[in-house]
Design a protein around this nucleic acid. Sequence first.
DNA 1: TAATAGAACGAACGATCGTGCTATTGTCTG
DNA 2: CAGACAATAGCACGATCGTTCGTTCTATTA
Lengths: 228, 228
Amino acid sequence: MKANQPRAKASDRPESRTSPALKTPLRRPRGLKTRQAILRKAVNLASVEGLEGLTIGKLAAALRISKSGLFAHFGSKEDLQCAVVEAAREIFVEKVVRPAYEFRGLKRLQALCENWLSYGEGKVFPGGCFFSAASLEFDDRPGRVRDRIVELMKKWLGNLEQAIHDAQIAGEIKNEVDARQLAFEIQALAMGANWSSRLFRDPSAFGLIRGAILQRIEQATGSVQSRE
Amino acid sequence: MKANQPRAKASDRPESRTSPALKTPLRRPRGLKTRQAILRKAVNLASVEGLEGLTIGKLAAALRISKSGLFAHFGSKEDLQCAVVEAAREIFVEKVVRPAYEFRGLKRLQALCENWLSYGEGKVFPGGCFFSAASLEFDDRPGRVRDRIVELMKKWLGNLEQAIHDAQIAGEIKNEVDARQLAFEIQALAMGANWSSRLFRDPSAFGLIRGAILQRIEQATGSVQSRE
DNA sequence: TAATAGAACGAACGATCGTGCTATTGTCTG
DNA sequence: CAGACAATAGCACGATCGTTCGTTCTATTA
């Protein structure tokens, strides 16, 4: 974890790779490509073995690349982990968030849920939802990785909540519904589906939960409903 | 992970410590005591760092004990992990399951939920619910540890489902309710509360979810409810 | 064509991992 | 008190961890 602390010279050249603005603004065709290839494999590996279980040696071996060559793309393991989180985020946004933003209000909420479910169900990540695993793995590990994960999860919950709120304004969801709570319940159910499907190797979990979530949304849209 | 596989002689003496029946049926006062002390610390450490992040060296250091002295209590790291899972199970049963079994039917279900919530809320494990973390960590790691976790989680879900079923027979919960699905939803909400409270350092998550679960149960017990 | 910058490599570092021996302690029995 | 035996410590092992260093290869630029 904190191996070889005495000599930590990686951060002495603070922005050797992250600030390309010196002479040529963008010109590293080979480096960028391999970096992306590394991250693609790394995200998949990390979704299975965890972000901490993701090892530079194993990752390099999986890519048939030298450890040092791989390492040079990131200044430290923490940097690599951050980059992996970012790469996973891009995939998540691409598959779940963006398509839903073609709609508004209730339709957007439904699209967010549906997209999440097929994201979890399909083999987007071989180890199931990356963020479910990562957020539970890092909830007790202070650092940049944890901070970023917290940020992203808050944003995701905020997206759900905002969609619910918009649907309320549009009159599609009852005003008594607590948007924050409903968003949270949906998220919990979705993560539960992922959990069950991974742990029990039971793909039917998503079907079950799809029903539960739809029922929960219908309940919020009106019709009868018991409010005790 | 699989360090030093060539020489694996630990399992050659299969039951040197687990079968006490030879001459004296029960006489290892010191050994058992330290073993339990080890496991108590190990469970706490594992709930924070994960079952794989739990390291023999760190555990020994935390107990001010030699690595080899600790190691002798278990034949391998996998054995240690299994023992940790078992120790966590005992705590869980003690705090959550057993007290609820003084009741029957709906009351038992309510007690199971309430006990789980205060188990997650209180500092039973310093890293939050042990099994939420462990089951997500090991969902892709085949082996005895995973098998046992699966077994335990199935049993726990079965307990919830059975309580619901009993409540249905007693006429306390409506017959149309799908016991398996309700059990699953409750479990998902509970794990969601744990997730949120750990990740966002927000203890109010449990209050929110307590309300959601109670609402969900009330909905199942009757009154109005929309079944569209 | 020569100079140069970036990308990848091989080897090695100190630390720590899980594990295996062997010796020493401590405790109970005869 | 001596011996037996369980419990623990000491020490070492091979492997792998994250990291650094100096070198080589490759491609663009002067």
